[in-house]
Design a protein around this nucleic acid. Structure first.
Length: 418
RNA sequence: GGAGGAGUCGCAUAGUGGUUGAGUGCAGCCGCCUGCUAAGCGGUUAAGCUGGGAAACUGGCUUCGAGAGUUCGAAUCUCUCCUCCUCCGCCA
């Protein structure tokens, strides 16, 4: 969320940042509303001041003087209530507008309307060459009996999967691999709740923007998280953190749930786009003047993991029109999938600046007073998609799949085979 | 799910309609005292909004789990909700 103060003080910058996201907002109208709000605050505060004084005087008075004063206050309090109601309405209107405005894009974000305009800034690794026709993960999984999508459809519907046998151990190996690395880099591991209250969804900016993507429970006003970013960000809500403790880094491992509404035709084959998957996530609470450094750190960490896993990828700077509401800037790592002969999104990391911090009320204590901090998130390992990438990139002619070397100490085997 | 109890300024507590601009203790910080330490004495320690002022600074308002209500006036009374605790039931 933006603050009205920020809009007043950095009008042109905010306007430009929103324009980059292809969002048009009537900021002039907002400022007019805020003028009215301030004026009403002055008026109601005067009346409240009067009230406070009177409630000290009244007990000292008696008889007619007392009756008179009470009658007088009755009248002025009625007026005060009316003004306060007016003030509430204006505040509600301002907030309703602000909560819908996305975080303005950073100046280093490329211009553009959609995916087509994202900018590839780096490419790593060599696409594997095969002396046979490579299969996609669906066929590999079926042939080795380690992925069962048909039975998942029977039990849960489309876009679900069973992971079986050796692949289960590969998943856990990936999780261990990520956690080992991140703990060394100062991340505190967390197993967060996967059901959260509405406030956590609003606080992180998934509501109201992405309502259609979120599962909601029928009887309990709780939402299933689409990423552990939600409970990790909310962990410190309404807190003030000492500046010396920043950056505070957490890594959350959780199952994630996404409705994938509006993706009906997309990625229907296999488990690339499913309703449920496991993910190791990085999250950082950071001082505002260091957040772009931290963003690079998170991106580099993602790249290191891909390199150690030996998966060819490219880095994409997401353009303004393709950015979500909370992010001021975002990088995606796209992984090469031989089964599709394409680079596909595997991880992404965002600098949300103070957008989530304002909604969640997370500040840092500095010598110069308290101020909102910045929040950043990045995928460490999106397990499902990483499994796809490993199966397709490490497949062999005989139908078996080699285990990337860095994972072998966790799996205890070197090859997945029949 | 049923029955009770509780939520006050970092922690602990006082406070059942009006001198509460929320007191006291502990802890923290600063100073004094002091061979050292301890003790003692004095001061100080929340957040948000808003007005005046170039600024230093200064005035006002709000916040006692959250929201609504009663009242001229609510930490205090009423209602709803949230969280935690105890007991019973059920359960991985």
């Amino acid at each position: 969320m933006l603050s009205i103060k920020n809009i007043r003080e950095n009008f042109e910058e905010v306007e430009a940042g929103l324009a980059k996201k292809h969002v048009k907002a009537d900021l002039d109208h907002l400022i007019k509303l805020d003028d009215k709000r301030r004026q009403l605050i002055v008026e109601t505060d005067e009346l409240k001041n009067l009230k406070n004084k009177a409630s000290k005087e009244i007990p000292q008075l008696s008889g007619q003087d007392k009756e008179k004063k009470i009658a007088q206050m009755k009248e002025s309090q009625a007026k005060s209530k009316t003004l306060e109601r007016e003030l509430e309405e204006i505040k509600t209107e301002i907030d309703a507008t602000l909560v819908k405005l996305p975080n303005p894009a950073h100046e280093s974000v490329p211009e553009g309307a959609d995916e087509q305009d994202n900018v590839v800034i780096d490419t790593w690794g060599k696409k594997p060459s095969f002396d046979f026709k490579p299969k996609d993960h669906v066929d590999i999984g079926k042939d080795l009996d380690i992925i069962d999508i048909e039975r998942a459809a029977k039990v849960s519907g489309s876009r679900f999967s069973y992971i079986k046998g050796q692949l289960v151990l590969l998943e856990l190996a990936l999780v261990w691999f990520a956690l080992d690395k991140l703990i060394k880099k100062g991340f505190t591991p967390m197993l967060p709740p996967v059901l959260v209250k509405e406030a956590a969804m609003y606080g992180t900016g998934f509501l109201p923007a992405d309502e259609a993507q979120i599962y909601k429970t029928a009887l309990d006003d709780l939402y299933l998280i689409g990423t552990s970013e939600v409970p990790l960000a909310s962990y410190h809500s309404d807190e003030i953190i000492e500046e010396e403790k920043l950056p505070l880094r957490y890594t959350g491992f959780s199952t994630c749930f996404r409705r994938e509404a509006g993706a009906y035709g997309k990625d229907t084959r296999g488990m690339f786009r499913v309703h449920q998957f496991d993910k190791v996530e990085m999250f950082s609470f950071c001082s505002p003047d260091k957040s772009y450094e931290e963003h690079d750190f998170i991106r580099q960490t993602e790249e290191e993991m891909m390199q150690e896993l030996g998966l060819p990828y490219r880095v994409v700077n997401i353009c303004g029109g393709d950015l979500g509401a909370p992010a001021a800037k975002k990088y995606d790592l796209e992984i090469y999938l031989p089964g599709q002969d394409k680079y596909r999104e595997l991880t992404s990391c965002s600098n949300c600046t103070d957008f989530q911090a304002r909604r969640l009320n997370i500040r840092m204590r500095t010598d110069k007073g308290n101020q909102l901090l910045h929040t950043l998130n990045g995928t460490a390992i999106a397990v499902g998609r990483t499994i796809i990438a490993i199966l397709e990139n490490y497949q062999q002619k005989d139908g078996s799949v080699k285990v990337p070397e860095v994972l072998q100490k966790y799996t205890g085997f070197e090859v997945i085979k029949k």
